[in-house]
């Protein structure tokens, strides 16, 4: 268990809603939900997940901390914004789902090996490294995340795709060696480091 998690449990005791309000992006809006179910019916991959946004918001109010932060549902959000434009209470549902995923991820409670969690992490790290996304490295890393053998299998399965893109000049093999990037990388990294420092302090990720 991470220290941040122990601290949070200690600090908010039995009030998970308060914890969410304080630490999760747009978490203060959770209490506005009237449980109408529109969001639940709007998710494109809805049938594939366990907890719809509506259910998650209900569970937050019911104090089901472990179930919520251990859920893989937030990672199934495709950011389609269907729920957000339909919600009669105008909850920024997409952002809350993202915020919860981030919070669970940072506390180390999000499900291990959840593919979108891993991909999202890869994506961010890839983008941050050079300031711009290196699509080839992103693709390769994604396929090889499970180790060499399964990676080769998956990559072979998708090779028609990669090869096609390559032939159509839309994937650059030279990107392996570097590729696009921001010139003032030092400054770019300093901004992120500072922003992270401020956010971590506020959300209790640092002591």
């Amino acid at each position: 268990m991470t220290t941040a998690n122990t601290n949070a449990i200690e600090r908010y005791r039995n009030n998970f809603l308060k914890e969410v309000e304080a630490n999760v992006e747009e978490g203060h809006m959770v209490k506005m939900c009237m449980q109408c179910g529109v969001c639940a019916g709007s998710c494109p991959l809805g049938p594939a997940w366990q907890h719809s946004p509506q259910k998650i918001f209900m569970m937050i109010r019911a104090g089901k901390r472990d179930e919520v932060l251990g859920s893989d549902s937030m990672f199934m959000c495709t950011s389609c914004y269907n729920c957000m434009v339909r919600c009669p209470r105008q909850l920024p549902i997409t952002h809350i789902m993202h915020g919860l995923a981030n919070y669970a991820h940072r506390l180390g409670l999000a499900p291990k090996g959840q593919p979108t969690r891993d991909f999202a992490t890869l994506f961010w790290n890839n983008a941050i490294k050079k300031g711009r996304v290196n699509e080839l490295m992103l693709t390769l890393r994604h396929y090889f995340r499970g180790g060499l053998v399964s990676g080769i299998k998956e990559a072979l399965g998708m090779q028609s795709v990669g090869l096609g893109l390559f032939m159509a000049k839309r994937l650059n093999p030279m990107e392996i060696f570097g590729g696009h990037g921001v010139k003032d990388l030092k400054g770019f990294h300093a901004i992120i480091a500072k922003a992270k420092e401020i956010e971590d302090r506020k959300k209790g990720f640092t002591a």
Binding site: N102, W124, V133, A195
Partner: peptide
């Protein structure tokens, strides 16, 4: 210019870093 972080950046990136970039 730098990457915007895209929608999927939320997981690792969090709120302020994403807005800052």
């Amino acid at each position: 210019w730098n990457c915007c972080g895209a929608s999927v950046g939320y997981c690792e990136g969090g709120e302020l870093p994403r807005i800052a970039i």
